[in-house]
Nucleic acid binder design. Structure first.
Length: 193
DNA sequence: CAGTAGATGCTCT
DNA sequence: GAGCATCTACTGT
């Protein structure tokens, strides 16, 4: 089990980083305890050239400013007024690429994850945190954590797991992005049957 | 199961 | 003032 250094995220190809994150482990350690899960779904957002990205066209606002920070920074923002969505900034400073974590499989602290999600034991653990809003909620991440470097209370780990197969599809919920909406930028760990 | 309405609040025009 | 990188609950099989 090794913690990924911040330099792991500074590559120039956000799509490749998104793919490589499948199977890695995200862990949070906050006051209420430790939780972690295996990343099983990600999406790449390719900065200024990607209409689906918040930084399309080089937009800089107080919200998106974090996307221009150094690789390995957390970008967390609120969607639909309710859901906190967790992203990892990649590439060099001033290049606003990011990877959205869309689903995890709980590993450590499942009791705390269930408490945060208010899920009873009848929900199987594999279905607890499918969907980006649920991932952040399960791990206790909120917009307060935007801007944190992912080497302390939030961190990414490699335990040697290597996915057998990864499914690639277009991204979810970005139909407004017109010609970029069908880019194959979504990666999923395929269940073996 | 599948389909859909409604919630909810920040961000940007 | 519109529009979201969504989820839940409720309907009907």
């Amino acid at each position: 089990m090794t913690k990924l250094p911040l330099s792991w995220f500074d590559g120039t190809d956000v799509v490749e980083i998104s793919r490589a994150l499948i199977g890695k482990i995200i862990r949070t350690r906050f006051d209420d305890g430790l939780t972690s899960g295996r990343i099983i779904e990600t999406e790449a957002y390719a900065g200024v050239t990607d209409k689906a990205s918040h930084a399309y066209g080089g937009r800089r606002t107080s919200r998106t400013e974090i996307m221009y920070a150094q690789a390995g920074t957390a970008y967390v923002y609120l969607c639909y007024g309710i859901h906190h969505l967790f992203n990892i900034v990649t590439n060099q400073p001033d290049i606003p690429h990011a990877v959205l974590i869309r689903a995890i499989l709980p590993l450590e602290g499942e009791a705390l994850i269930r408490a945060r999600l208010k899920k009873t034991a009848s929900v199987p653990s594999a279905k607890l945190a499918l969907g980006p809003g649920l991932v952040a909620k399960a791990l206790g991440i909120s917009t307060h954590h935007t801007g944190l470097l992912l080497n302390d209370s939030i961190s990414i780990w490699d335990d040697g797991f290597r996915p057998e197969a990864i499914r690639i599809t277009p991204r979810i919920g970005i139909d407004y992005a017109q010609e970029d909406k069908d880019l194959p930028y979504r990666f999923l760990l395929t269940e073996k049957s």
